[in-house]
Computed example of a mutant assay.
Amino acid sequence: MKKFQRFLQRADKNKVLRRLPALHEEAFAANDCLQCAACCKNYSPRFKTPDVKRISKHLRMKESVFIDTYLHVDNEGDFVVKSSPCPFLGADNCCSIYDVRPSDCARFPYTDEDVLLKRPQLTLKNATFCPIVFSVLDKLSEGS
């Protein structure tokens, strides 16, 4: 992880952003999220207001009931799931609200966007459990 931390501190943003799409695709081709689901088992996305509205409507629940049932406010002031694994994760590692999932879930693991560089602490944390993030960082740091 130290290698990744050093890389993120001195990375050439434009060079990295040019390489991300290919590395992202390569990592996703080599890793099956449905075999892993570590993100859903151990961490929670942020549920922003549009996510809460969309998901509660999909579940035919009042927003307040959805929040009371599934969410709590974390130490950063964000809505996150109350329990791990995520209550929407099935035994088959499929998401029961996949089509309306939070934007954080849709964007995860951020290996195709500048979040990888803009939020280095998040990237390093994600690399500890997500083989896709680890793979992308490993290849980026090799080529630097």
Rank of each mutant, 00 (worst) to 15 (best):
T49L: 15
S64W: 05
I97R: 05
Y110Q: 03
C105E: 00
P87M: 06
K62F: 05
D112S: 13
R60L: 13
R101I: 08
P120M: 07
L117I: 15
K125S: 09
I132C: 00
E63A: 13
P87A: 07
I97V: 15
S64P: 02
V136K: 05
D78V: 05
A91H: 09
D78G: 05
F47A: 03
Y98T: 13
P85T: 03
F88P: 00
D68C: 05
Y110V: 01
V100M: 08
G77R: 10
V52N: 02
S83I: 15
A91C: 08
V133L: 06
M61R: 10
T111C: 10
Y110I: 03
N75E: 15
P131G: 13
V81D: 02
I132A: 00
S84I: 04
R119T: 13
A127W: 00
E113K: 09
C95F: 06
V81E: 09
P87V: 11
R119D: 12
C86N: 01
I55A: 04
V73N: 03
T49A: 15
E63R: 11
K48W: 14
D112E: 10
N93M: 06
Q121P: 02
K57E: 14
D114R: 12
P50L: 10
L124R: 05
S56K: 01
D99V: 10
L117E: 07
C95G: 03
V65L: 10
C130V: 09
K82Y: 02
D74K: 13
F47L: 15
D114K: 11
T128R: 12
F66Y: 12
K82Q: 14
P102V: 02
F134L: 12
F134P: 01
F79H: 12
F66D: 03
P102E: 02
F129I: 14
K118A: 14
S96L: 12
V100N: 07
D78Y: 14
V73L: 09
D51R: 12
F66P: 02
F129M: 10
L89W: 01
P85R: 01
D99K: 11
F129N: 06
F79I: 04
K57I: 07
L116I: 15
T123F: 00
L137H: 01
P102W: 00
T69M: 07
I97A: 06
D112Y: 11
R107L: 15
Y98H: 15
R54Y: 04
N93A: 04
